[in-house]
């Protein structure tokens, strides 16, 4: 808009950009927290005989995260297809 303003303009804060980036972070941290709780319930025995993860628990965690991502991915596609078939009013 102004000959000299280009660089400056580029340096103003657009609240919408921030809000979108925040929402992205919010969503990632929500997914992460749910993943932690879900795989904890699936893999960690509530006996707590030792402070370290056992071999079995470690392997279970890896597989749990892998399956959770797969489920998330396939549900995301499933929902998109559903959304196209029944567009919300």
């Amino acid at each position: 808009m102004s000959m000299f303003g280009i660089g400056k303009n580029n340096q103003t804060i657009n609240p919408q950009n921030i809000a979108m980036a925040e929402q992205e972070v919010e969503m990632m941290s929500d997914i992460f927290n749910r993943l932690v709780m879900t795989c904890h319930k699936k893999c960690i025995s509530p006996k707590y005989y030792e402070a370290d993860l056992t071999k079995g628990e470690s392997v279970c965690i890896d597989r749990c995260v892998s399956k959770y991502f797969e489920a998330n991915q396939s549900l995301s596609q499933h929902m998109q297809k559903r959304g196209q078939e029944n567009p919300t009013p």
Binding site: F32, L35, Y48, E50, D52, L53, S58, I61, V65, S66
Partner: peptide
């Protein structure tokens, strides 16, 4: 022990994530 395990669990999930 539960707390330590929870933190280690959380770290491992974080790495895989």
């Amino acid at each position: 022990k539960c707390a330590d395990k929870f933190l280690k669990h959380s770290e491992r999930v974080g790495q895989r994530f």
